[in-house]
């Protein structure tokens, strides 16, 4: 079972602001999802290789050849804030 505190913690990690009613709602919804996933655990998966991907493709590679980049101007075009050739962000010092 997932607790309301865990929902708060995960929301904080994802920088989501949610109000108290939403916290209760998400707690119950997430628990429903976990319950549903738990049902899959009833299947016997002995001898089945774990998979991390829905399609059976492996080794999709790219050759090491340079293709023109966007360039500074286009790279910054959608930025909420920029100055000169840089993105500008609130100062974060860890």
């Amino acid at each position: 079972m997932i607790s309301k505190q865990e929902v708060e913690y995960v929301a904080h990690l994802a920088r989501l602001e949610i109000d108290d009613a939403q916290k209760d709602k998400f707690t119950s919804q997430l628990n429903d999802i976990l319950l549903y996933i738990d049902k899959l655990n009833e299947l016997d998966t002995t001898g089945v290789e774990p998979m991390s991907h829905a399609i059976a493709v492996t080794n999709a590679f790219r050759e090491d050849r340079i293709v023109d980049s966007l360039g500074t101007e286009k790279s910054l075009a959608n930025a909420p804030d920029g100055r000169g050739e840089f993105f500008r962000v609130p100062k974060v010092i860890e």
Binding site: F61, R62, I66, V67, S69, L70, G71, T72, S75, E85
Partner: peptide, 30 residues
């Protein structure tokens, strides 16, 4: 496919993939 060269003009070696635009698909360099 952006260049890795050091010392280019800031943000000149960037594309939708390395800028983290939504909907793009990274493909591994062999």
């Amino acid at each position: 496919n952006c260049s890795t060269k050091f010392g280019g003009a800031p943000n000149s070696h960037a594309c939708p993939v390395c800028l983290g635009m939504p909907g793009v698909l990274p493909v591994l360099n062999k």
